[in-house]
Amino acid sequence: MNEINGFRPPVPGSQPSNDSPAYLTTRQRHPLRPLLAFPHTVTETTGPQFSPAHFPPMTDLSVVDGKAAQGERIIVRGRVTDEDDRPVAHTMIEVWQANAAGRYRHPQDTHDAPLDPHFRGDGRVFTDADGWYQYTSIKPGAYPWRNHNNAWRPNHIHYSLFGAGFATRLITQMYFPGDPLLAFDPIFHAVPDEAARNRLVSRFDLDVTQPERALGYRFDIVLRGRTATPMGI
C-alpha cells in the first residue's frame, strides 16, 4: 500500500479564481469545464529541490556592476512556514520587479519610463533552517497597464516559491502598506477574502530597517500544509 499524505485544499475565499473577469485577459484563458478532482499522488506530493550550487543566490538587487540602482533602497525580510506553522527550510524563492520608475527590464515593457543601467530586477534567495529569508532591493515603482482606463498596478514584487511538493507551488506578489492603488487593482482584488488579500501586503518594520541605509519591510509567506492523516483512495 502506498499511503500518501496529500496537501490540504485551500480555505474557501483565500485563493483567487482563475475566472476573475475584472482582470480582462482571464476571460479567454480560464478553463470553462470544472477541474478534474483527483487525490494527490507522489507526482503532486513531491517536487523539485534546488541547490545553491546550481542556482546561486542573488540577494542584492540594488547593485549592478558595483553601482547603486536609482531609487529608495529597501530590505525585505520574512519567514516561510506551512499551514501548521512549521518553517519551510532551505527552499528557493525567486523574486522579480520593476525599477524605481516602474519599468521592467523586459522587451515587452514599453512604458515610457527610464530604464536604469544599474538595475536588472531579478533575485534569488534561499530560506535558512528556520524558514527566514532576506534580500535587498529598491522600492519598485507603480506602472500603467491597459486593463481598463487609467489602470495602474500598485507597487509590487513578484514571488515564486516551490516548497515540499508540486502541490505547494506558489506564485504571488508582495505589496506595500498604504498604497492607494491597491483599492483599484483587479489582480489584488481577485482574492475574495479581505484578510487573505491583506496578507499580501508587507508591513513596514523598524527592526528590519537599517540606520543610514535602507527601510525594512516584513513579508511572511505560508505554503499549504499536509492533511492530518494519510488519505485512502
Partner: peptide, 18 residues
Amino acid sequence: MSIATAFQTIGPYWHLIE
C-alpha cells in the same frame, strides 16, 4: 494554524527569472 498565501498571476514579465 495559518492559511496559505494567495496566488497572484505570474504576469507578462516573468522572463526576468527565465
